[in-house]
């Protein structure tokens, strides 16, 4: 599904990723952990094509195609979804309209017709139920006036509607209290199917209590310094990152 080889990337002329290698197969759940400033968020932005990040070396191959030259919207249409750590607020753009627009862009790309208003309503209600979100998410401007937790929930709603093949969730658990975390984590579990691959970027182990990763990678100073299974995450929780970094 996704093969990252020797990936180096700069932001503002400073090298942040210094040779990342990662291989993610269909249906796998990978957790990427690491201290602040280790390059976790950069990795997600490079894969999804943020213009501020300059790839200086290496490749990102998704479904047998190097995607580095693709526009962010092309990558999204091919099935890559990124859940933002800080979703932007866009006043004046209705959330429901936006969801429909994004879904239709995808359907158009897949050669399908636009979804009918009735079908869309049905789909939306279904997904709202799935993540236990109320109608509040429909008649609002995109992320405007939502709390931190609600914004994250809105990201999961988009994930549910767009049904990507690969989802990268960047610190979806940050800034959430324990109750909100439970809701968001269960939401993710509900919407992700066995065929979808998932990358969870997180600083803490607690999200992984809800979603069991197949692999855990530790990122430090732009490189993956250790990979393992979920027990690695527990060890990190107990002992912190220092034993790995030093």
């Amino acid at each position: 599904m996704l093969v990252i080889k020797d990936l180096h990337a700069n932001v503002d002329g400073v090298e942040v990723l210094k040779g990342i290698n990662l291989n993610i197969k269909k249906g796998e759940v990978h957790a990427i952990m690491g201290p602040n400033g280790s390059g976790k968020s950069t990795l997600s932005k490079v894969v999804s094509g943020h213009p501020d990040y300059e790839v200086t070396q290496g490749s990102v191959v998704y479904k047998d195609e190097d995607i580095l030259s693709f526009d962010p919207s092309d990558r999204a249409l091919k099935g890559i979804f990124m859940g933002f750590q800080y979703p932007v607020e866009i006043p004046g753009v209705n959330n429901e309209e936006f969801l429909k627009m994004a879904l239709n862009a995808k359907r158009l790309y897949q050669g399908k017709d636009e979804i009918s208003p009735e079908d869309f309503n049905k789909l939306l209600e279904e997904k709202l139920d799935l993540i236990k979100a109320g109608g509040k998410f429909k008649n609002r401007y995109l992320n405007v006036g939502l709390s931190g937790g609600e914004k994250k929930k809105n990201e999961i709603l988009q994930l549910a509607i767009l049904e990507p093949d690969l989802a990268i969730l960047d610190e979806t658990d940050s800034g959430l209290d324990i109750d909100a975390l439970k809701v968001v984590a269960n939401g993710i579990k509900e919407v992700i199917s066995k065929d979808q691959s998932l990358i969870l970027i997180t600083h803490y182990q607690r999200l992984l209590d809800y979603i069991q990763p197949d692999y855990v990678h530790v990122l430090s100073d732009g490189k993956i310094i250790k990979s393992g299974d979920k027990t690695l995450a527990m060890k990190l929780e107990e002992q912190g990152y220092d034993w790995l970094v030093n």
């Binding site: 094509g49 962010p72 979804f81 866009i90």
Partner: peptide
């Protein structure tokens, strides 16, 4: 970037943001 990462083509994203403004 946010809008494009949801698969919206650039022109549509610009149009949306303009209307938002």
């Amino acid at each position: 970037f946010y809008l494009k990462s949801r698969g919206l083509p650039e022109e549509l994203a610009i149009d949306l943001l303009t209307k938002s403004f």
